[in-house]
C-alpha cells in the first residue's frame, strides 16, 4: 500500500514538469482565453509576450482591439497604425480607427480617415460614410444637406437618422426671453411653458397669496404688515421671472444632453457599423 502511494506521488511529480506553460502556443491559448473572458489588460500582456516569438498581424489587431474595448482609444490608435497595408485585417483596422476618432471626438481626423478609406476602395466605405454622417450630429461643423446626409443609410436606419437630423437642425428649444415675459404677465406661466408644471403652479400660488395678503393689509390699514407682504410678494414675483429664464436655459441644455445620449446609444447599438468579429466563436 505504501509503495503504491509513493509510486503515485512520484509519477505525478514527474508528469507535472512536462507541460511548458511558457511556450508560444500556450501563451497564445491563454491570451485568447483572457480576451474572450473580457480580461483585456492581461490579454494584452500575454499577446505582447507572444509577439516576442512571432510577428503576427492578427495578434497586433487583437491588442489594438483590446485597447479599444477598454476605451483606451489613444493606445488603440497607436496599435492599429502598426498594422501593415498588406495585412488581411488592414481595412478593418482603418474602420476601427474611425471608431476611436469618433470616441475621442477628433472629427477633422475622422473626416480625413474616411477619405483615405475611400481611396483604398475598401469594402467598409459605406460604414465609414455612416460614421461620418453620424459625427456631423455631434460636432459644431456645418451639417450637409439632408439628402446627402441620409444617403449611406438603409431603409431601416433612415427614419431614425432622419429624426436625429431634424433634431439637430431644428432643436425644440424654448426661448428664455419668452419664458421671462410669460412669467412677468402671469406668475408661473414661464415655468409651465418650459414644462415645469408643478413649479409654475407653486409660483403662481405663492405670488398670488402674498399679493392678496399685501392688498388686504393695505385695505385694513395694517401698513407694517402690508409692506412686509409687499416686499415678499415682489421678491417672489421677481424670483419667479428669474427662475423661468433659468428654467428655459436648463431645458435647452437638457435637449442637447438627451440628443447626444440618443445618438450615442444608436451608434453603440449598431456597433459603429463595424461587423462582429468571430475571435471567440
Amino acid at each position: 500500500m505504501k509503495i503504491f502511494i509513493i509510486q503515485i506521488i512520484i509519477s505525478t511529480v514527474v508528469l507535472a514538469q512536462s507541460v511548458d506553460f511558457n511556450s508560444p502556443e500556450n501563451i497564445k491559448l491563454f491570451a485568447d482565453y483572457l480576451f474572450c473572458d473580457h480580461d483585456y489588460l492581461r490579454a494584452i500582456d500575454e499577446y505582447e509576450k507572444y509577439l516576442n516569438f512571432f510577428d503576427n498581424d492578427t495578434i497586433r489587431f487583437k491588442i489594438a482591439l483590446a485597447f479599444s474595448l477598454m476605451d483606451e482609444h489613444t493606445n488603440a490608435l497607436k496599435n492599429f497604425n502598426k498594422l501593415s497595408e498588406a495585412s488581411q485585417l488592414y481595412q478593418l483596422s482603418q474602420i476601427e480607427e474611425l471608431k476611436s476618432f469618433f470616441k475621442l471626438k477628433l472629427f477633422p481626423q475622422l473626416s480625413s480617415k474616411v477619405s483615405e478609406i475611400h481611396n483604398l476602395k475598401s469594402e467598409y466605405s459605406l460604414s465609414a460614410d455612416k460614421i461620418l454622417s453620424i459625427s456631423y450630429l455631434l460636432n459644431n461643423y456645418s451639417i450637409p444637406a439632408e439628402k446627402l446626409f441620409l444617403a449611406p443609410f438603409n431603409d431601416q436606419e433612415k427614419p431614425i437618422v432622419q429624426n436625429f437630423y431634424l433634431r439637430k437642425t431644428n432643436p425644440d428649444y424654448k426661448s428664455e426671453i419668452l419664458a421671462g415675459v410669460y412669467s412677468a404677465i402671469i406668475p408661473g406661466l414661464g415655468k409651465i411653458y418650459t414644462e415645469n408644471y408643478s413649479d409654475g403652479i407653486t409660483a403662481f400660488l405663492i405670488t398670488g397669496i402674498f399679493s392678496y395678503l399685501a392688498y388686504t393689509n393695505f385695505e385694513h390699514r395694517h401698513l407694517t404688515r402690508a409692506w412686509i407682504f409687499t416686499v415678499a410678494g415682489a421678491g417672489f414675483y421677481a424670483g419667479n421671472i428669474y427662475g423661468s429664464v433659468a428654467s428655459a436655459q436648463i431645458f435647452n441644455v437638457k435637449i442637447n444632453f438627451d440628443f447626444i445620449n440618443d445618438v450615442n446609444s444608436f451608434i453603440e447599438a449598431k456597433n459603429y457599423f463595424i461587423p462582429e468579429y468571430d475571435f471567440c466563436k
Binding site: 408643478s198 413649479d199 407653486t202 417672489f236 421677481a238 424670483g239 428669474y242
Partner: peptide, 19 residues
C-alpha cells in the same frame, strides 16, 4: 442675483407636488 435665485429656490422648496 443671489437674492432672486433664493426666491426662486424657495418657491421650488414649497412645491407641494411630485419632485
Amino acid at each position: 442675483q443671489g437674492t432672486l435665485m433664493f426666491f426662486d429656490r424657495f418657491t421650488r422648496d414649497t412645491n407641494i407636488f411630485e419632485r
